[in-house]
Design a protein around this nucleic acid. Structure first.
Lengths: 146, 146
DNA sequence: GCGCCAACGTTGGCGCCACCAACATACATG
DNA sequence: CATGTATGTTGGTGGCGCCAACGTTGGCGC
């Protein structure tokens, strides 16, 4: 393997984005075995944690564009993981509910993702993992406000 | 802003990929002002640091697919930032050389990227920045072998 | 009540990045 | 010389993030 330019290798943004590629690949491989993508997991996770929600709400929680939520919910609904019903109180909204099947799928994806975390952080000691997670958390919350 | 599911917010891979989105956005905005993308910067940086190189070599150094190198080099050549000439020793290869104009562009992109780093790591103290960079580096080198 | 603005869902599209398959050419190795 | 392998090139795919536009529906001020 040829060396990568120092200009890149030293920059946090390079390390971050390149490592994110690996993280994404690890997670995606697991998801793919269940026929899912990241967007599906996000939606299922949000529904499980906060219960029935409108699509707009899901978008805000999961950091997804409204239009992408549409596609994800449609795909999840086709496989019976969620149900999409019109909100009688507000006829603009779709209420998306998690089904039993969806809960099962979420568990499956959870296992895959846990494995991915393990693979991702493999070479790090528990202490370092915690430090890394903390620092990433600080930065992310900071950038999500602005 | 609604809260994001704990299932996501706690996972390093989530923090990593989401923060990478911000990092990528910060860098891209800077690059865009110079009419460039990440791929262009990578190629220019590799050429500056290691001198003339074949496209395959560039791909290995910059972690890019051969086909993507073709496009990037073509675009850079159109704007006079690099020159593509056939290697007389090995007529399969294209030797890609950085021009003076290309060096100027690289400087410009460098400034933009430095600014992005600053914005990205804004809320972190020098000590924490160093720790973060180190941990990311450890993980990245680990995953690049496998 | 009416008009205006905001929110929602939906469609269609775009850009960046990562990746793959296939091919022709040219080199390397047996 | 035959075989295999590296290179450049073309064309295509998929995930993710994002935007513009439209029709529908609610909410609010007047």
């Amino acid at each position: 393997m040829e060396e990568t330019p120092e200009r890149l290798a030293g920059k946090p943004s390079w390390l971050l984005t390149q490592l994110a590629v690996h993280a994404h690949r690890l997670a995606s491989e697991g998801f793919a075995e269940a026929g899912a993508r990241g967007y599906h997991y996000r939606v299922l996770a949000a529904l499980d944690e906060f219960g029935v929600a409108s699509q707009a709400e899901l978008g805000r929680r999961c950091n997804m564009d409204r239009s992408d939520v549409v596609a994800a919910v449609t795909e999840l609904a086709e496989r019976g993981f969620v149900e999409r019903t019109q909100d009688p109180q507000d006829r603009r909204r779709n209420m998306v509910t998690l089904t039993e099947l969806g809960r099962t799928q979420l568990c499956r994806l959870d296992r895959a993702l846990d494995q991915a975390q393990e693979d991702l952080l493999g070479p790090l000691a528990a202490q370092d993992r915690q430090t890394l997670t903390r620092l990433l958390g600080v930065l992310l919350t900071h950038h999500q406000r602005a």
